[in-house]
Design a protein around this nucleic acid. Structure first.
Lengths: 206, 206
DNA sequence: CCTAACTCTGAACGATGTTCAGCATTAAAC
DNA sequence: GTTTAATGCTGAACATCGTTCAGAGTTAGG
């Protein structure tokens, strides 16, 4: 048995609180400690440093994606991949402020390995699999980057985000005629439809 | 004419110094001030805050890509796009630590607008253009993220980076058979060849 | 009962971005 | 030529950040 006094928190609850703070806009050791009724110093009994918390968190987020969708052999290759990618996008975009960390680090973690292995099951050519990963993660990263800039508001629903993009998108029609003409489509870059459209095209070439 | 004393630096030199510091691993207002023989407070006469420096810097970096390659009408559509994408990748990967900022912010800037406009010239369907952007930026972001984790060393040449990836890549063959079998290709994910291969596939579907 | 392992507090340390009063410098106004 | 106003910069300070650590308190094993 463990000797000292009982812990007043557990790593999982700590990660929950950390995720809330990231969603709110800023993860601070002091804020995190306050959220779980601890002193900043006590956090270092749970994780060696802040980076370890972020890593554990992003690994957990990535693990929330449903790998079963990728392995469902009753469906076609493209259906499986598209369905899984949509699920991954939905899961990650629930916490857009955590996405940069995921893209930056967690793809060395064990969870990322499992995702890669499953993807290779559906798409055996590793070059093709990487191309899909690049597209999916790139699209998610670009979408998440946009939300990052906004204030600490809640994540707006998709239709609302697109409408906001559309009304904020004003370009000089003389200098950027093509961009100006495409404004409606450009506003919808962050839509599920655009994500799916691009992914299906990419898959059709692999 | 301007009244007060002569400036002892200029914004451009400041950005040069800032880029050097980013390449070295950490951009600090104090370090930046020291590099141009100033006091931290004086920097705020040149830029309103740190974020403005990063934004200006990323905009300049993006502007270093050769848009002429995209507009060279003597070549086929795919050739133009591939050539430009390779140039953009090379330009950005000269400063991998600055890449996250680019992906995060500069795509609202005026330089990004010009890139988008030129891309629409070569690829008129905006949905197709965005798909290409997602692939190109996603690939660059994933490559850059890997270097970010390394120490403040100089950027290693490609062959060396791939060799390092290969020797660092050890997975359990039982748990991850497909990943294990593909290890050589996976190590080469960050190669110019893989980048081009994926891009050509993507373009072939658009 | 004692000891060793453990958790947590409270205070501190160094580093960060940013602000600001004051001084120095220069061009315009008179 | 003298005054005035604007500008550049310093030096010191502020709040906040991640992190460390001595010590107090708590628990289980010997």
């Amino acid at each position: 048995m463990k000797r000292g006094p009982q812990r007043s928190a557990n790593p999982e609850a700590l990660l929950d609180a950390a995720l809330e703070l990231i969603d709110a806009g800023r993860l601070t050791m002091r804020a995190l400690a306050a959220q779980v009724n601890l002193t900043p110093g006590a956090l270092y009994t749970y994780f060696p440093d802040r980076a370890a918390i972020v890593t554990a968190l992003t690994d957990r987020l990535l693990g929330a994606a449903d790998l079963g969708l990728l392995e469902d052999t009753t469906r076609t290759r493209d259906e499986r991949i598209v369905t899984f990618a949509l699920n991954l996008r939905e899961v990650l975009m629930r916490h857009p402020r955590a996405v940069p960390s995921i893209l930056g680090a967690a793809f060395t973690g064990p969870v990322a390995l499992r995702v890669g292995e499953s993807l290779l099951g559906a798409l055996p050519d590793p070059r093709a699999a990487y191309t899909v990963m690049v597209y999916v993660l790139g699209a998610i990263a670009l979408e998440a980057a946009e939300i990052e800039e906004a204030g600490p508001d809640a994540v707006a629903p998709e239709a609302q985000r697109i409408a906001a993009r559309r009304s904020a998108f004003v370009v000089d029609p003389e200098a950027f005629p093509r961009t100006h003409a495409a404004a409606d489509v450009i506003a919808a870059y962050v839509s599920t439809e655009q994500f799916r459209w691009g992914l299906e095209r990419v898959l059709s070439a692999l």
